[in-house]
């Protein structure tokens, strides 16, 4: 059986919600960052699938994925820099040690 658009969309949607679930349940900052990457990759799969099966004569989707990957790298760089700084002051990258600000 050839994989069709539904299979790809199923994978990407599952990946998206795994990412959302991970973001809300994980307490480790690096893992939360990884969950965000999962979300972004699910979007990439979405774009590629739509581009291949629905809009084969266009390039917008493919171009969009390239930009998403580049931005994700930039975002991860800044986030990791911030997390390192957080680690210096708290000796931990667990969210429960970063809750001075609340209510």
């Amino acid at each position: 059986m050839q994989p069709g658009i539904y299979h790809l969309l199923l994978i990407s949607t599952a990946l998206f919600f795994i990412g959302v679930y991970g973001f809300f349940t994980r307490r480790n900052l690096i893992t939360m960052l990884m969950s965000i990457e999962l979300i972004l990759n699910s979007v990439n799969i979405n774009f590629i699938a739509f581009n291949k099966y629905l809009w084969a004569n266009k390039l917008d989707g493919v171009l969009f994925t390239i930009f998403i990957m580049a931005i994700a790298a930039a975002e991860a760089a800044v986030a990791i820099a911030i997390i390192i700084n957080l680690y210096r002051s708290r000796q931990s990258i667990d969210v429960k040690h970063a809750e001075e600000l609340k209510w």
Partner: peptide, 16 residues
């Protein structure tokens, strides 16, 4: 970053 992930998912559905 999380909110831009959601934004992108919305954009990809619009593109589809």
């Amino acid at each position: 970053a999380f909110s831009s992930g959601i934004l992108l998912f919305g954009i990809s559905l619009f593109y589809g």
